[in-house]
């Protein structure tokens, strides 16, 4: 029994890590799209266009694979989720696909294709706000209370979902977080590219979104006590992880404030979000969907679990050096970042 227990946890940790990776890289992408659209309309044009061209275009497909990896992995490790989440998520997930399509086609049709179209840039920016909102719905649903079994089939109660304060606090947090993450990253990236004007604007955005971030994050925990008391209690058991996360947040903001060491600020931001994200995940354990589905009753058979983990290890050992190469060329290559090398 101990072996199966281990497999379930390993599977979940792998998937959770990839989801975290997706949330980080996608937030940068979503936020940048929004800032770019905003700059088109506010007249601070072309400052961000460069960064989007140089950094986001080469990597957006890789970003997207993180998401695909996550949902394919979930169905692989926990096939029952396909039944529960697949049935209930038809509408929100379809909207998310459409929004992803807007982003993908923006890269395809605008940046590779030809001239900038304002309306398209606006849609692209808007999709960056709507995507975290629509994807975060999954987290809300997982808290339970929105899915009931009718004749044995799971049905999503839209009215309850959209009138719940919990839904809207999670939506708000997801949007604010992606703007904040993106702004901090772009501050660092623009500064590295010696584009000090862009860095100054991005630093301002990062500081603007810092306070709303903490308020919305606190708001979720506050709302959760009325919605799912079990989860709420478990979060308090892990208070030290959240406290540490908060501490890292404070230091990040201080560094931005005094305009020092943006690289360290970015690393601390990663630390802040990973602590909060894993603490949330651990406190959610063992439920995948309160109260219908746990890690254990949805898990696949042992043979499949082991082969998935072996495939993961093999694939990952191929992936890691390739990812490193990609980042070295587009993120850490001084000439490329500064724009001395073109495509």
């Amino acid at each position: 029994m101990t072996l199966t227990l281990d497999l379930e946890i390993i599977g979940m940790v792998v998937l959770w890590t990839f989801l975290f990776g997706y949330i980080m890289v996608a937030s940068i992408d979503f936020g940048a799209g929004f800032f770019h659209a905003f700059s088109l309309f506010s007249g601070t044009n072309h400052i961000l266009a460069n960064v989007i061209q140089r950094y986001l275009s080469p990597v957006w497909e890789v970003t997207n694979v993180f998401l695909v990896f996550f949902f394919v992995g979930v169905v692989g490790f926990f096939p029952k989720t396909a039944y529960y989440y697949g049935t209930t998520l038809l509408v929100p997930a379809s909207f998310a696909i459409i929004l992803l399509a807007i982003r993908g086609s923006y890269y395809a049709f605008q940046t590779y294709g030809a001239k900038e179209h304002k309306g398209y840039a606006f849609m692209y920016g808007l999709s960056g706000l709507l995507l975290p909102a629509s994807l975060s719905i999954v987290l809300t649903i997982s808290e339970g209370g929105f899915v009931s079994l009718v004749d044995g089939s799971p049905v999503l109660d839209y009215w309850a979902l959209f009138t719940s304060p919990l839904t809207w606090s999670i939506v708000l947090l997801s949007i604010v977080a992606s703007l904040y993450i993106s702004a901090v990253f772009l501050t660092w990236y623009a500064n590295k590219a010696k584009d000090y004007k862009a860095a100054a604007i991005m630093r301002k955005y990062a500081l603007i979104w810092a306070l709303p971030l903490i308020i919305t994050a606190g708001g979720i925990i506050y709302e959760l006590q009325f919605h799912n008391d079990v989860h709420y209690q478990r979060i308090f058991d892990l208070w030290w992880m959240f406290a540490l996360s908060f501490l890292l947040f404070v230091v990040t903001v201080c560094l931005l404030w005094i305009r020092k060491n943006y690289g360290l600020a970015l690393i601390l931001l990663l630390g802040q979000f990973s602590l909060a994200f894993y603490a949330y995940g651990i406190s959610h354990y063992p439920y995948l969907l309160y109260p219908h589905l746990t890690l254990y009753d949805s898990f696949t058979n042992q043979a499949m679990a082991i082969s998935l983990i072996v495939a993961f290890l093999a694939g990952f050992s191929l992936l890691l050096p390739s990812l490193y190469l990609l980042l070295r060329l587009f993120l850490f290559n001084k000439d490329y970042v500064e724009g001395n090398r073109s495509s």
Binding site: G76, K80, A82, M304, G315, L318, S322
Partner: peptide, 21 residues
């Protein structure tokens, strides 16, 4: 997918790696 996921999830999973690459 619930049924097939138990038996044929492996190549689906490997496909994401191939595409990643």
């Amino acid at each position: 997918m619930e049924l097939a996921g138990n038996v044929i999830a492996l190549p689906l999973f490997m496909e994401t790696f191939a595409f990643f690459f």
